[in-house]
Computed example of a mutant assay.
Amino acid sequence: MTDRQDSPTTTASDPAAPETSAPQRRRFLRSATLGAAGAAAAGLLAACSKEPEPAPEKMGKTSEAPAAPAAAVKPSTVVFKIQGSWGAKDIFNEMAEEFVKRVNEMADGRLRVDYLVAGAVVKPFEVMDAVSKGVLDGGHTVPVYWYGKSKVASLFGSGPITGCDANQTLAWIYRGGGQKLYEELLAKLQLDVVGFFAMPMPTQPLGWFKSPIKGAGELQGLKYRTVGLAADLFQEMGAKVTQLPGGEIIPALEKGVIDGFEYNNPTSDMRFGAQDVIKNYMLGSFHQAMEFFEIIFNKKKYQALPKDLQAILRYGV
Rank of each mutant, 00 (worst) to 15 (best):
D114F: 01
V100S: 09
E126S: 04
A72G: 07
T2N: 14
Q168P: 09
A12F: 14
F80L: 05
M201T: 05
F286D: 14
Q235V: 00
I173A: 02
A96D: 01
T77S: 08
S150N: 13
G221A: 02
G316A: 12
G273V: 05
T62Q: 10
E57N: 07
L189S: 07
K61N: 11
K255N: 04
G138H: 06
S76M: 08
P56V: 06
V113A: 05
M270Y: 12
F293D: 02
M1F: 13
P205A: 13
G163C: 12
A166Q: 02
G260P: 01
E184M: 11
D129Q: 14
R314H: 13
L229N: 02
T267L: 08
R271N: 15
A107P: 00
A274T: 01
A107L: 03
Y302D: 01
G256T: 04
K223P: 00
S285Q: 10
V103L: 07
F234L: 12
L170T: 01
A153R: 01
L283M: 12
G195I: 05
R102Y: 12
F196K: 03
G238M: 04
Q243D: 01
T33G: 09
T9A: 13
Q288E: 12
Q235C: 03
L189G: 07
I173H: 00
Q190M: 09
W208A: 00
K61C: 13
R25H: 12
Y263P: 11
V117P: 04
I173N: 00
K50Q: 13
F156R: 03
Q243N: 03
T141M: 10
P124V: 07
G60T: 02
G138R: 06
K58Y: 10
Y174S: 02
K58Q: 15
G316K: 03
Q243V: 07
N104Y: 06
Y115H: 02
I249Q: 00
K123F: 08
P124K: 04
V131R: 05
E236M: 03
G159T: 07
L136H: 00
V142Y: 14
N93L: 10
P52W: 08
K81T: 04
E105F: 13
K180H: 08
T2P: 14
L283R: 02
S150I: 01
L34V: 08
K151L: 11
L136G: 03
P245C: 08
S31H: 10
L116D: 05
A216N: 15
P23E: 10
P160Y: 10
P306D: 02
G273I: 03
L45R: 05
P245S: 10
R175I: 03
V79K: 11
K123N: 05
G260V: 01
K279C: 00
L233Y: 08
A311T: 05
G316M: 08
L189K: 09
D6F: 10
P69N: 00
G256L: 06
I213A: 01
G178D: 09
Q24C: 11
N265D: 09
A41L: 14
N298V: 05
Y115A: 06
M290K: 07
Q168A: 15
E218W: 04
S7V: 15
V257M: 11
F261R: 00
A120T: 10
L219N: 06
P75E: 07
P251G: 07
V78L: 10
M1H: 12
